[in-house]
Design a protein around this nucleic acid. Structure first.
Length: 850
RNA sequence: GCCGAAGUGGUGGAAUUGGUAGACACGACGGACUCAAAAUCCGUUGCUGGAUAACGGCGUGCGGGUUCGAUUCCCGCCUUCGGCACCA
């Protein structure tokens, strides 16, 4: 029978579904394994990035099933988000309708891939039965003091009357209408993630299953630094400016001050002065700059003198106050004491604006103002620093802070780069923030019996402007639960990262209707043993999930500190982007031949970047599945590259995976009778040894490779095994058939997690009862994976000059003797002095000669 | 720009702890089978000198270094990708 994936894939998918094969329940008697892939945003269709992610997860899940573990492998939908809203406005369809359609299409696509999900646990975050718990927890967090409101600066389009995401800003203009983007100050809700900063930094012990690169990224993101906050009195105004500095040892060298343009003090500084108008214009010009650009160290420093001075608390000298583009309101206090001699940015700024430089740290040799070409940021002894002169700068940090503390001018402070999490979104398609704003009582939580606060129905159309919820009076107008007076319901919704911060807990009891999740279920299933998802989520999603888990712990919902034991960060599947000057981003199929399929304009080929619906550089797996079947698609993407490496998509080579699967199929088909025949006992000869060797080596290699995520080399090992088995098939006799049968039986099982449909079919044809998905993973014998006779390399001065076959573990002296007898080695050592003889057991010999 | 990665034949990649660079595939070329094609099977395939040999030289982004020995460790660069807080 020919290998026909179209028939067998449908057949086995149906059998698995009918038998509810992947449905799991808590079973205390069994060891559990929770395997989770990051759930997708239902953008429309799945693409190769999803296929890669879910294929990896499926191999691991199916492997663990076969290892006898009770495997939880759920799937669901990160269903709230901006694209649904954009599509709604564009096509006059409700986001819920669009999302539902996408979910149903994508679910069908996932099913076609034969993934081992327990679909009974499916969740969609836009379901009120999901987000109601988020609202409940939100109120509890507020009651615990973990939430507050604050103003922040956001991208704003006056024309669309809406906040813009950074990705909606194109060269300073609104992507939809082209109107110039402004910065607007808006009120928002904040979660106090900074309160957990130290615990989030504590990776030791609990996150040993995470790659250090992710931990490093998170650690840098949190950016803990030790320093001091120092208060500077403003001249002629009864106010002061507080700065954070990591270099209190240089405070005597502070000669001016720079403040962020967003700093609230700015208006006070400028008020009723001759600088007011020009200063405000300067602030406006900076706020228009690209945020990423403003962080650019190389970017030209720009400043504006406010006409005001602050007093240096240690020297008593006046310091002019500037507004500067490179000072960020988000970090520290939004104001910095500028020490131009010892900070490079301040140095450049001072050079441009003619500010005074003062050396206060001297390294060994004499530093002079005239010879300085850049700031000196290294260590040294204090000079020009009053009673601290002569001290080494490190101990001086503490001494100066202590002194300032005594005078009530400053104190030792720890600062984090991490900012509190702003969760307010001026959007429709998200979970409503369960609060009511009352003129008399302030922010009042929606009473528990009124939860969930559901989204009202809204008619979407292309002419829509602003936040939809704000325009629904029956939603917005309400009464204050506290005083009964007229009040406004909060019309912002929550950041969608809120939903993805706890969905893994909901999966443990997705239908629980009395709490976010059943604690006993969570206690059994958590933690997630293996989490798999794109490296793009290394910081935000993974940090928020860690934070949220700790909050839930502190609210008594869970007993765990961390949600994810082992983390596999998958490399991005990338593809070049295509853009039509007329129609914007194009799908690859719309850009064929370099011409836009809509208008025949020349297509601009953009850079290679991660596949995403917004850039349209996506490749749908449908064609591949139709042509070769899901098994080949899965096998191919796993074989193409190791999971953690990024992959530029190309389907060239998919033929090879299909060919391999056909070879497996034919090899087993040709020998299918071995499974029903009475076979003679194996003979003890070289061929038998060979079969045993290859079988055991392959089982070991594939097992090890799955454990260390190297799925591409696991596939290569199986290919090698098949090549070897074909060679053996040619020369084997009756006495080898029993071992050969064992070999192809192992092959069938090894390949089952990768190409489960083909494996099930072969298993059935071989006459086995039940399913290979539920059979046992093969074992191997370490002794049989080693050869007695091995080949080692012989080098002279590190260059390969020959090889010798020796018995394993031959004595060193005997190896040297054999190596020295090689003709080519004699040629390269003749007449030379032997300096050294190196032997790496069972690997190589190196003769060092002169 | 900052933080984190990656760079190896024509292509995807392998080399698990510093020990024979290029496993396994794709592609290409040559051949077998076939009336022919598809499928399948066999062989060659890093570059280069040499004779298609023996035997050499070069070669893992670039430039240095450590070492008997470096794709692997160190220093300095280049390019590409991910993240940079309202895309998810």
């Amino acid at each position: 029978m020919k290998y026909n994936p179209a028939d067998i894939e449908v057949k086995w998918q149906k059998i698995w579904e009918d038998k509810k094969l992947f449905k799991v329940d808590k079973d205390e008697s069994k060891e559990k394994f929770y395997c989770l892939e990051m759930f997708p945003y239902p953008s429309g269709k799945i693409h190769m990035g999803h296929v890669r992610n879910y294929a990896i997860g499926d191999v691991i899940s199916r492997y663990k099933f076969m290892k006898g573990l009770n495997v939880l492998h759920p799937m669901g939908w990160d269903a709230f988000g901006l694209p649904a809203e954009n599509a709604a406005i564009e096509n006059s369809t409700h986001p819920a309708v669009w999302t539902k359609q996408n979910i149903s299409y994508m679910k069908q696509q996932l099913k076609k891939l034969g993934l081992s999900y327990d679909w009974d646990r499916e969740i969609a975050t836009c379901d009120p039965e999901y987000y109601r718990w988020e609202q409940k927890v939100f109120i509890e967090m507020w009651e615990k003091g973990l939430i507050y409101k604050k103003k922040s600066h956001l991208n704003w389009c006056d024309d669309c009357n809406t906040v813009l995401a950074n990705e909606q800003v194109e060269e300073g203009a609104c992507w939809r209408c082209g109107h110039e983007v402004q910065i607007k100050e808006l009120d928002g809700w904040y979660l106090k993630i900074t309160q957990y900063a130290d615990e989030l930094l504590d990776f030791t012990e609990k996150l040993t299953g995470w790659h250090t690169k992710v931990l490093t990224m998170q650690s840098n993101w949190i950016g803990k630094s030790y320093g001091a906050s120092i208060s500077f009195k403003i001249k002629d105004i009864d106010d002061s400016i507080e700065v954070f500095t990591t270099r209190p040892d240089t405070v005597f060298g502070a000669t001016f001050m720079s403040v962020a343009p967003e700093h609230p003090i700015v208006s006070k500084l400028l008020e009723n002065t001759e600088f007011q108008k020009e200063g405000q214009a300067f602030v406006d010009s900076i706020l228009k700059e690209d945020k990423v650009n403003r962080m650019d160290d190389e970017k030209e420093k720009r400043g504006f003198f406010t006409g005001r001075y602050v007093v240096n608390p240690v020297t008593g000298e006046d310091m002019p106050v500037y507004i500067a583009n490179f000072v960020l309101m988000d970090y520290g206090t939004g104001a910095v004491m500028a020490v131009p001699a010892h900070d490079q940015r301040d140095f450049e700024f001072a050079a441009k604006y003619g500010c005074e430089l003062k050396i206060v740290i001297q390294p060994g040799e004499e530093l002079t103002l005239d010879s300085m070409e850049e700031a000196y940021t290294g260590a040294g002894k204090l000079v020009n620093s009053g009673q601290f002169n002569g001290m080494d700068n490190e101990p001086a940090k503490k001494a100066i802070v202590d002194w300032l503390d005594e005078k009530k001018l400053g104190k030792s402070t720890i600062n984090y780069r991490l900012r509190d999490w702003q969760i307010s979104r001026q959007r429709y398609w998200g979970a409503p923030i369960p609060f009511i704003s009352c003129a008399k009582c302030g922010s009042v939580p929606v009473p528990a019996d009124q939860l969930p606060v559901e989204l009202p129905d809204v008619d979407f159309n292309p002419n829509m402007r602003g936040n939809p919820l704000d325009k629904v009076p029956e939603f917005k107008n309400t009464v204050c639960p506290k005083c009964g007076g007229a009040a406004n319901r909060e019309t912002d919704t929550m950041d969608t990262f809120m939903e993805s911060s706890w969905y893994f807990l909901r999966y443990t009891s997705p239908k629980c209707d009395t709490a976010p999740f059943d604690k006993s279920e969570a206690d059994y299933w958590m933690n997630v043993d293996q989490y798999i998802g794109g490296i793009e989520h290394a910081i935000l999603h993974l940090l928020y999930s860690r934070f949220y888990t700790k909050v839930l712990r502190d609210l008594g919902y869970v007993s765990i500190d961390e949600p994810f034991n082992r983390l596999l960060t998958q490399g991005m599947v990338c593809k070049e982007t295509y853009k039509c000057p007329e129609h914007g981003w194009l799908f690859p199929e719309e850009a064929e031949g370099g011409k836009c399929s809509k208008c025949s304009s020349d297509v601009v080929i953009g850079r290679v970047e991660k596949m995403s619906k917004s850039k349209r550089n996506v490749v749908d797996p449908n064609k591949l599945i139709k042509e070769y079947g899901a098994d080949t698609a899965r096998l191919f993407i796993l074989f193409a590259s190791p999971p953690e490496r990024e992959l530029e998509w190309s389907d060239s080579g998919v033929e090879g995976s299909f060919r391999f699967l056909n070879r497996v199929w034919r090899l087993i088909q040709n020998n299918i009778n071995l499974f029903s025949e009475e076979l003679p006992a194996p003979v003890d000869d070289e061929i038998s040894k060979e079969i045993l060797f290859h079988t055991n080596v392959t089982v070991k290699k594939v097992t090890d490779d799955i454990e260390r995520y190297q799925l591409n080399t696991a596939v290569a090992a199986m290919m090698e095994f098949v090549n070897n088995l074909y060679a053996i098939e040619q020369k084997m006799g009756e006495g080898h058939k029993a071992l050969f049968k064992d070999a192809i039986f192992s092959l069938m099982k090894l390949i089952a997690p990768f190409t489960p449909h083909a494996a099930e079919e072969l298993y059935e044809m071989a006459g086995f009862e039940g399913l290979i998905s539920r059979s046992e993973w093969p074992d191997f014998d370490e002794k049989l994976t080693q050869k007695d006779e091995i080949t080692i390399a012989v080098q002279v001065n590190g260059k390969l000059r020959g090889q010798i076959d020796i018995p394993r573990n031959l004595e060193k002296e005997a190896v040297f003797e054999a190596a020295l007898a090689i003709e080519n080695v004699i040629k390269h050592t003749e007449g030379m002095n032997m300096v050294k003889q190196i032997y790496v057991p069972n690997k190589l010999v190196n003769f060092v000669v002169k």
